[in-house]
């Protein structure tokens, strides 16, 4: 691994300044490091400066009524162990548990998962189905984007060069579920994943799919096809067909296109069924 300068600023202002004063294009941000270190080891990334967020006061989790704000540097394992999460947003609990292993989640963070924005992220599809927002902090102050607007492509985001992810806000708790297919049940990359949530305020479904490049995406036609709070088997079938028709599902070294397409229907059926029954 190439040598780099490692800095751990104590305040958000210092952190943003250290991003700005760094060599252009040669600064990497370190959350838990579980993805970045993998890249450094493989030589895919060779930053001159790495800015660690470990000293920032962002390891927070705050319920405000039905809304949840998660600090970007909160370890995923702490989020997973929150006593309310599983009951209130079961799909997010499942999606968090789909990331790596317990020992990996003790360091991995939600901010890191979003910032690195891997096409097979298990968290992005669930955040899409929850209409989550990303709170960014930069030299000009704060701004707020939907996760849909933030994630732009495979490992591409709307994050500015001197911006940091401060928190993720989920506007309301929703019955929800996250179902995936992979080779190894844990610590593996999902070949195909379906995130589903039902918004009690909008009386509407949210459906997002992931597992193939360039990025996880919502499928509004599938959401419309599900319709009511208790869709029948035909409605779920039509929704699965909409996903298969609309989602740009492709083959890669992990799975063929046809296999992925065949996974859509069973995963969606299970996820909708779990959501109707209260989640997970």
């Amino acid at each position: 691994m190439a040598d780099f300068e490692l800095v751990a600023p104590a305040t958000p202002e210092e952190a943003i300044a250290s991003l700005r004063t760094g060599p252009p294009g040669a600064v990497a941000v370190l959350g838990g490091g579980t993805d970045l270190l993998f890249d450094l080891e493989e030589g895919r990334s060779a930053p001159e400066r790495v800015v660690s967020l470990r000293r920032l006061p962002w390891r927070t989790l705050e319920w405000n009524g039905n809304a949840l704000t998660i600090g970007s540097t909160l370890p995923l394992r702490t989020l997973e162990n929150d006593p309310l999460l599983r009951a209130r947003i079961p799909g997010l609990h499942s999606a968090v548990r789909a990331v790596g292993s317990v020992a990996l989640r003790q360091r991995a963070t939600l901010g890191g998962n979003l910032g690195r924005s891997a096409p097979a992220s298990d968290l992005v599809p669930m955040l899409l189905a929850l209409d989550a927002e990303v709170l960014l902090l930069g030299p000009a102050g704060e701004r707020r984007l939907t996760v849909d607007g933030f994630v732009q492509g495979s490992r591409r985001t709307a994050l500015g060069p001197a911006e940091l992810i401060r928190a993720v806000r989920i506007p309301e708790a929703r019955p929800s579920a996250y179902h995936w297919q992979r080779v190894r049940p844990f610590h593996d990359i999902s070949h195909m994943a379906v995130a589903v949530a039902f918004s009690p305020s909008a009386r509407a479904w949210r459906v997002a799919v992931a597992g193939f490049p360039p990025r996880p995406l919502r499928v509004p036609e599938a959401e419309a096809a599900l319709g009511s709070a208790r869709p029948d088997a035909d409605a779920v079938h039509r929704a699965a067909e909409e996903i298969a028709r609309r989602a740009p599902i492709v083959a890669d070294h992990r799975a063929s296109e046809e296999y992925r397409r065949q996974l859509v229907r069973p995963l969606l059926e299970r996820a909708v069924d779990a959501t109707v029954r209260g989640g997970r």
């Binding site: 270190l37 470990r54 394992r77 292993s101 990996l104």
Partner: peptide, 18 residues
């Protein structure tokens, strides 16, 4: 896997200085 402040942690994905 080792424990860091009592929590299981992958020492291969953790910088010593962190």
């Amino acid at each position: 896997t080792v424990l860091v402040d009592g929590r299981s942690t992958l020492s291969c994905l953790t910088l010593a200085r962190e």
